[in-house]
Design a protein around this nucleic acid. Structure first.
Length: 270
DNA sequence: CCAGACGTTGTT
DNA sequence: GTCTGG
DNA sequence: CCAGACGTTGTT
DNA sequence: GTCTGG
């Protein structure tokens, strides 16, 4: 599924990809974790004809969906995903699926391939082969606290993994093609059933998976080094304590460059 | 009818 | 093992 | 998603 | 709020 992702594009790239967004600033983030704020793109309030403002607006919402009818979020589990196969049947998602469909922009996401019992899971950074932005299909809900304040929350829709990701993980986020953004976001004229066809696995050839170090495991780590191809280490090797140097001999890229040459583009290794 | 749940992933 | 926090 | 805590009484 | 279970 999708439990971590990255959004490192600048405002210009975001505006170009989505055809205009009303954003002031956005820090690059290489390790977005559940409960943190995530950028959500949604339909703008029905505008005046002739308005030249952006067709969509964007804002930060909490990653962890809370249905509107919940009294105390502490009584509700953290819901970071919604299964596209069953989302139409769930009371929790009903209103959001009808009225608050969103896109969650990303430059890629992380999946952990679980090895045998006792072995460490291997994280992969998964991104478009051509680079640039992708957009997850998401649902948003506004939760009203007893004291009158409001919190917007969101979940990412999931679907079966495509052939490219299946060796790593059985599920993947629903990633929409740019030509489908408008239909997904148009909750005014598109009934939920009319957008159900969009909730499908992405074409196999779009994404590549890069094995990365397990520094990404810790949600407190957040930097471009999280996307560097992991150095090759035999699977039997144990993690080193490295008592003298925490640098472990690896040089860092000083800048915010994604890896220029992924170590591999097929997943059938190991 | 009322009571109680309301979610996903993964693992065995 | 299970829950909470990021 | 993974990491890290997981408890109480009473004292400074 | 809405659905499922009894």
């Amino acid at each position: 599924m999708c439990g971590r992702f990255a959004l490192t594009a600048d405002l210009q790239e975001l505006a170009a990809h989505f055809g205009g967004l009303d954003l002031d600033r956005l820090a690059p983030r290489y390790n977005i974790a559940p409960t943190q704020p995530v950028l959500a793109v949604m339909a703008a309030p029905t505008g005046l004809p002739g308005s030249n403002r952006a067709p969509w607006r964007a804002g930060l919402v909490r990653w962890g969906f809370v249905p509107g009818f919940i009294k105390d979020p502490r009584d509700f589990p953290l819901v970071i995903n919604a299964r596209s196969e069953t989302v139409f049947e769930k009371a929790s998602f009903r209103a959001a699926l009808r009225h608050r469909r969103v896109l969650l922009p990303a430059n890629g996401f992380y999946e952990w391939r679980k090895a045998g019992k006792g072995e460490r899971a291997q994280p992969f950074f998964i991104r478009p082969r051509e680079g640039g932005l992708i957009a997850f299909a998401g649902l948003m809900e506004c939760w009203a606290s007893p004291d009158g304040s409001e919190v917007d929350t969101a979940a990412i829709l999931t679907t079966a993994a495509n052939a490219a990701l299946a060796p790593i993980h059985a599920r993947m986020p629903v990633i929409l093609k740019p030509e489908d953004y408008a239909r997904w976001l148009d909750c005014r004229t598109q009934e939920p059933r009319a957008v159900a066809d969009l909730l499908a696995p992405l074409a196999d050839e779009v994404l590549e998976a890069i094995p990365v170090s397990d520094r990404v495991n810790s949600a407190s780590q957040n930097g471009p080094e999280l996307q560097l191809p992991a150095e090759f280490v035999p699977l039997t090797a144990k993690p080193q304590k490295a008592p003298h140097s925490k640098a472990s001999g690896r040089s860092r890229p000083g800048e915010d460059e994604a890896p220029a040459e992924p170590a591999q583009t097929q997943l059938s290794l190991f």
